[in-house]
Amino acid sequence: MTSSRIRPWAAGTAGVLLVLAALLVAMTAGVAIGEMTIPMKTTVAAVTNRLGLTEIAVPRIQEAVIWDYRLSRSLVAAFCGAGLALSGAILQSLLRNPLAEPYVLGISAGASTGAVSVMLLGFGAGAISLSAGAFAGALLAFAFVVMLASGRQTADRTILAGVAASQLFNALTSYIVSTSANAEQARSVMFWLLGSFAGVRWPDVALSASVVSIGLVVCIWHSRALDAFTFGEDAARSLGIAVQRVRVVLLLVTALMTATMVSMVGAIGFVGLVIPHAARFIVGPGHMRLLPACALVGALFMVVADIVSRIIIAPQVLPIGVVTALVGVPFFSVILYRARRVA
């Protein structure tokens, strides 16, 4: 009984500050590390120059690499991590299922199908961008899941519908790739499907930043309602929560965040699953603290994963999905193991 009295998140606030500091360090490292070796001093100078804080002479090419390639990439990684972790936390609480996340519910798979359709089948005849295709695919998969799970909506049904959606859309993607891609294209599609931050630029930063910020605000606004879902929908309803409205709003926000991320960087699994569990371990189950913590830890995780993906087989880059799974699974095992001991 004594172990049950210990609250492991007593020092939660200090932990969050620590994660914030770690995030800044990781992002600086992410910007400094790369194919072209650039001294740390130049790195910092390049950023502060662009922010109008300093006017230090820096080689133009180095400044361009730092500002246009690496900083934007690092920022997108941070926002992606935050958005995916947040989506996972919301889905887990709303569906009361520790396995829920965008990847499991087939939203990522739908986005991939949409992107591949544009890429290989030429849907939209060039008028539709890859991102728009992915976004349409994500919404389609999401609608599919909601439709299958409709009627008497229970958590289990939604998960089952998600499994069906993943299978369907992954099969569609494979079908499209194997029937219409040449070897070269197939390779690049597979690479994209596993996630990549290559090629993200400042417009991507603006988009991901605004979507994640809006998502975070909406989710935090609903944190009390999410707490009330602890014992299920009827319990939430009897506590005065407008269950249907909260569900629709939060599921749409989740779909929006996921679709934006997948269209930008591909389907990255495991972040939405692992990070909320890790964050819960740090700050506890209350959503007012959990959601910001998820965003921070998710951002940190993704920035570090991106650095690892670039240095592990340099000068080549590993797909980010490979790194998140390789880092995530052992990490997840530790959490499961410790949780078992506590229980």
Partner: peptide, 19 residues
């Protein structure tokens, strides 16, 4: 009532103040 969440007695009773 069932939950997977790692909540304490106090967390649950506090939910009553939600409305």
């Amino acid at each position: 009532s069932m939950t997977e969440a790692n909540v304490t007695v106090l967390d649950v009773v506090k939910l009553g103040r939600t409305p």
